[in-house]
Write a protein that binds this DNA or RNA. Structure first.
Length: 415
DNA sequence: CTTCCACGGGAACACTGGGGTG
DNA sequence: CACCCCAGTGTTCCCGTGGAAG
């Protein structure tokens, strides 16, 4: 330890060795999720389908609305971005007024925010909040209708928008009737295959005029994708033969998520680099896989709202105090009240806490099943579904929760 | 068949941070 | 400036419901 520090100080600069030409990566950027590749393996069909439909825009017609389904990391966004680039290039060449608007509905997730953003794109001044929605809408409408054009609005993660009411979509699908110059068509991208069930049937049929499905990649297809990117990202011969197939297999076993496969590959490379290894080996991939899993949990826990953290702490505390794994919602709620009291935060109602538990369940931090105990009513049985030592330190990082670490462990008799 | 209890959907409410208007 | 309007968010309140033990 000591001589390692000493060695570091003898170098000219702390960063010298850190930025020195790595022997692993030639270009790490191509492994990042934001990178849009020139070539998308195994997506010919989808690209062709999308291009066929959108080509109408170049002929001064209005393309049909499109709904795109597929799980995370199946190339939906990349494909759409790729096709939009091509379309925009061609439109420019032909001098037709056709543009594409990419909107992440997770960011613009309410009616107001969506219309306000759209209005601003068309040079209308609209405040972030404060106006009645219909006013914002007509600003947007006037803005877009000011000249003859065809606008293709891409709503990524459209399910996030729908979860707060489908009125915005309803309005957008019918806006063409109110426009005289401009035309709009919509592309909705969703990774939830069942979300259309929440939609008004009129919206559903109008938005889903055309549907394109992105199936998950299998291991062989993932291998192709990784091969292609690895050729650009890494120097020749630094990857062991087993590395890519292993990354592909690990990602395929989840749900064919290419993003995950790429993350895995990148992290493996980084680990190898930090270990000063000349090659990326199977070992590196395995530790990358572990680290990725860990990071996911830590990241999720860190960004939990305070109350949610307390609820999670309650489950944690319970599993420390008693030697069982599952707890009834009543037990959790009691513990929750105790903790709130201890850290000086107002406790919420049981109703609200069950909502938090459901959210934790969806996030996979906790496992909850409803069980009926016959005469004695029904409860949710709750168990922690991630390792304690993974969660605890992250929870205690929150300064408002520091006090929890000092809570005394009650004996079983007092309860 | 009854009975019990939390689950979970939905309405109602409070609060926030911004707008326009007189 | 005071005042009310508006969208959005987080919460509480109310209540119908599922389903096995008794």
């Amino acid at each position: 330890m000591c001589d390692r520090v000493a060695q570091r100080y003898t170098m000219d600069n702390l960063f010298e060795e850190l930025i020195g030409d790595g022997e692993i990566f030639a270009n790490k950027e191509v492994l990042r999720p934001t990178y849009v590749p020139e070539h998308l393996p195994h997506r010919k069909e989808q690209i062709k389908g999308l291009a066929d439909i959108l080509s109408a825009a170049l002929k001064e017609e209005t393309p049909s609305n499109i709904l795109i389904y597929g799980k995370t990391g199946t190339g939906k966004t990349s494909t759409v971005k790729y096709v939009s680039n091509e379309l925009e290039k061609m439109a420019q060449k032909r001098g037709s007024n056709c543009s594409l608007l990419y909107i992440n509905s997770e960011v613009f997730d309410t009616q107001y925010r969506l219309f306000a953003y759209l209005a601003r794109v068309f040079n209308r001044r609209v405040p972030m909040i404060g106006w009645p929605t219909d006013m914002v809408y007509s600003e947007f409408k006037n803005g877009i209708d000011a000249e003859k054009r065809c606008v293709i609005v891409i709503l990524d993660e459209v399910d996030k928008l729908v979860s707060k009411g489908d009125e915005a979509l309803y309005i957008l699908t019918r806006i063409n009737g109110e426009l005289t110059n401009a035309r709009i068509s919509l592309i909705g991208i969703s990774n939830d295959l069942t979300f259309t069930e929440l939609l008004d049937p009129r919206v559903k049929s109008s938005l889903g005029e055309e549907e394109i499905i992105f199936p998950p990649y299998n291991a062989a297809q993932l291998t192709d994708i990784l091969d292609e990117r690895a050729a650009m990202a890494f120097y020749d011969t630094v990857l062991d033969d087993a590395v890519i197939p292993l990354c592909a297999a690990l990602a395929a076993s989840e749900h064919g998520d290419a993003r995950r496969a790429l993350d895995l590959l990148r992290l493996s490379g980084e680990i190898a680099e930090r270990a000063k290894s000349k090659k990326v080996s199977e070992e590196h991939v395995r530790s990358a896989c572990q680290k990725l899993e860990m990071n996911k949990v830590v990241e999720v826990v860190k960004t939990l709202p305070l109350q949610s953290k307390i609820v999670l702490s309650s489950v944690l505390q319970l599993s420390k105090e008693k030697n069982k794994r599952r707890f009834s919602s009543g037990e959790v709620y009691n513990m929750y009240r105790r903790l709130c009291n201890h850290v000086g935060i107002e406790a919420l109602t049981q109703r609200r806490v069950t909502d938090f538990i459901s959210e934790l369940d969806i996030l996979g931090l906790v496992n909850a099943v409803i069980v009926s105990k016959g005469r004695y009513g029904r409860t949710k049985e709750i168990a922690l579904s991630v390792p304690e030592e993974c969660v605890q330190p992250v929870l205690l990082e929150d300064y408002k929760l520091k006090a929890i670490s000092t809570i005394r462990v009650r004996t079983q008799i007092t309860l």
